[in-house]
């Protein structure tokens, strides 16, 4: 009986769809609307039947045997506890502390090696070369103070130049 109902539904859907296409092709709009409605009804009916059948299958599924389920649960492999080392244990040193201290020692060693290597890069020859490179930008040998001769030569032609006076005495006149 169910098979007949299913076949009737599917046949209705297919036939109505075919007539819908034929009607559209023949410019018969009222017939096309009618067959379109039949297609829609058949489609909704079939979809509802499919959902109901699925629900029926779920309900008819045999109950799970609790004993077998328990056996299966017990036979599961133990889950790996990957963060056990983070738990606080009063009687044992945490491996985290070990790693922290060990990492500090290694980093200190590396820093000491880098320091020793850096100190070996400064040699007397290198220092002399650096001094020669810095000579062009060094201060003048007599310092930045104006010499006495320049101070005494204030009353010379061109002394009224403000910019020159500022350069020589620090104040413009």
């Amino acid at each position: 009986m169910k098979i007949i109902a299913w076949l009737a539904g599917i046949a209705t859907l297919v036939t109505a769809l075919a007539y819908l296409v034929v009607s559209l092709n023949r410019w018969e709009w009222n017939r096309a609307l009618f067959f379109g409605l039949i297609v829609l009804i058949a489609e909704v009916g079939l979809a509802t039947a499919l959902i109901l059948r699925k629900l029926g299958q779920l309900a008819a599924r045999p109950p799970i045997d609790a004993e077998i389920a328990g056996i299966l649960r017990d036979s599961r492999p133990a889950e790996a506890d990957r963060f056990a080392w983070m738990r606080e244990a009063p009687n044992q040193m945490s491996v985290f502390i070990t790693f922290l201290v060990g990492g500090g020692v290694i980093l200190s060693g590396v820093a000491w090696i880098v320091d020793r290597l850096a100190s070996k890069t400064t040699t007397p020859t290198g220092e002399a070369r650096l001094a020669a490179q810095l000579a062009p930008i060094s201060y003048p040998s007599g310092g930045l103070l104006v010499p006495d001769a320049t101070v005494l030569a204030q009353e010379v032609p061109g002394d009224d130049d403000t910019r020159l006076g500022r350069l020589l005495r620090g104040t413009g006149r």
Binding site: W27, E28, N30
Partner: peptide, 12 residues
């Protein structure tokens, strides 16, 4: 012609 035929044979 096709439209007229369709209209006449339709369920108008």
């Amino acid at each position: 012609q096709r439209q007229l035929r369709g209209c006449l044979e339709d369920w108008s």
